[in-house]
Amino acid sequence: MSHNLPEDGPTTRWKRFKDNDVVWSFINSPGAMIAAAVTVFLILACILAPIIAPFDPFDPSQISLWDGKLPPAWIEGGQSQYFLGTDNQGRDMLSTILYGGRLSILVGLAAVCLGMVLGVTLGVISGYVGGVTDAVIMRIADVQLTIPGILLAILINGVGRAFLPLELRQEFAVYVVIIAIGLTDWPQFARVARGATMVEANKEYVQSARIIGLPAWLIMIRHVLPNTLRPVLVIATIGLALAIIAEATLSFLGQGIPPTTPSLGTLIRVGNEYLFSGLWWITLFPAVALVVLVFAVNLLGDWMRDALNPKLR
């Protein structure tokens, strides 16, 4: 029948990849393309900071207090080698933002991964086993959800630091922040994973796996987990943006990463003190970088939610 859709699909691996509905939807939505381009550009720039940044903010020999508080290059008094100006310590703003962004993205990714692994594990177990296990896990998640995330992160962060000896606090500050944000994140993942698991667990392929006689853990890993990952990935992208903001907030509040190590949050906080003396660039440029990064990641997450939802296709 000639009128029917072509039955013989594409053959090569690349063609099959391009034929995929998600890829197709990506190529056909300019918003997603731009967001992805911006995200990739920012992430690459931050990862490659040691190569592309004009200065190294950690190298005291490249920092001079005499060069402190210089405005951006295009404003009177600015110097051409400091394109975005310098901060109060004389560090080049562009380099500091690149290095700071690197730390922020690292913290965000690590925290989301931690939250995702923890949340999805608990969520799948909760949804598949049900009963008392489910009730206990989900009530813990509910209780945690009633406490504002940032307060909880501050608490975990504070407790974490208190247990570390003084000389290690600086060194481990980043890990403590990652754990604090990751632990705050897990209920979102657990709820989504549990919902998806309950839908999947009632489907007949799971029942037939039970009839074959597979043990519960194998069914959960091999059959349920891969089929719950779509919605989880969607909230993971949005969660990444939130985790980057959470890190910035913690650092802004002085609870996160120490000011000597630049992250986008610490930069904004330090700059905030000089905002009213007219040194707006110290806080504005890191803030713009943060907003653009978070916005791009969020747009990607939004697109992914639509593209992966067969009902909206």
Binding site: E204, Y205, Q207, S208, I211, I212, G213, L214, L218
Partner: peptide
């Protein structure tokens, strides 16, 4: 063994047919 009603939900969409059919043999 059992054969179910709905042919769309009774197979794991993320596994190849080989792995679906071979699962009990391998296990």
């Amino acid at each position: 063994q059992m054969i179910f009603q709905d042919p769309y939900s009774s197979l794991n969409a993320r596994m190849r047919v080989l792995d679906i059919v071979a699962e009990p043999i391998r296990f």
